[in-house]
Design a protein around this nucleic acid. Structure first.
Lengths: 160, 160
DNA sequence: CGGTATCCCATTTGATACTG
DNA sequence: CAGTATCAAATGGGATACCG
């Protein structure tokens, strides 16, 4: 299979990767979440080549992740995260958390996240929206929509 | 900058991407989380070229994400997720959720996640470990370790 | 089954220079 | 500032065949 076919796979992971899985794209998004909005700032902070950056930004705008606009007053050009773009935050945070946990030097994580709502530094976790418990891979079952009903039956019978 | 330098960036996102950010790698991991463990199954289910798959698996083993071993009884060869590998689950789930939300066809998401613990299908979310509230990008502040103390002061003074 | 070995092509990349 | 233009070099990708 060609990589390009991945965009049309019946899998949300594959489709997402087709949009944000290219090299550099996540680092551009990182900068965006850190507050950067301008071409040259993206360029400097990531070290990406200018032509590649231009291509990535174009694609991200096309996919509705950035909105390209002039700053207030008609100043410079800005790339602002749309709602669709902002919604990628969990992906970035998950990557960061994993790196914090498994790849950090002995100084520990370089960056901390403060949750304005509660004013605390937080180590975000992914949880079950029903029971609030942390989602651990081993406790999860992935079921294609067609098999949902039967999977539920089996689980119930098993006394879960 | 060269891409290779990214692995040594002082940023957990960049470092993580250096390990799992290559093309195909996430799709291999997806298969692993769906229960696959064998070369040919990875190959068939992802459509990746065999030589590339071999290279990716080698790298993932080297990075301690897979453990390569013979199946019980000395049968075939298996790639099993280590703890480090299993810990990538949130990354995969976040990608999947974003795709579910923004890229799914009109049939809706192709795959559902059942949390064995509570027996319900769940839509995982990333939350603050302190207050339990959902983490929304706009409500977060990223602070380099060196500026942690001052950032906290400012927040407190602001009455947050 | 679980890979290697080859070979070739396509794409990506990075550097640099240029422009309105 | 926000890009284009160009171009050489590197890498990655895919198909196929082969092997223990």
């Amino acid at each position: 299979m060609r990589w390009r076919a991945v965009a049309r796979a019946n899998c949300s992971v594959a489709r997402s990767l087709a949009v944000v899985g290219e090299r550099w794209t996540m680092l551009i998004l990182r900068e965006a979440f850190l507050g950067q909005r301008r071409f040259d700032d993206f360029q400097r902070n990531t070290g990406i080549a200018r032509n590649i950056l231009a291509a990535r930004l174009r694609a991200l705008v096309k996919h509705g992740i950035f909105q390209r606009a002039r700053a207030n007053g008609g100043g410079h050009i800005e790339y602002r995260l749309t709602d669709k773009g902002l919604d990628l935050y969990p992906v970035l945070v998950s990557l960061m958390r994993w790196g914090d946990q498994w790849l950090a030097g002995k100084d520990g994580p370089p960056l901390f996240l403060i949750h304005r709502g509660c004013g605390r530094t937080t180590r975000p976790a992914i949880v079950c929206t029903h029971c609030g418990g942390p989602l651990v891979a081993r406790e999860m079952l992935a079921v294609p929509r067609a098999k949902l009903a039967s999977a539920r039956r089996v689980l119930r019978r098993a006394g879960a």
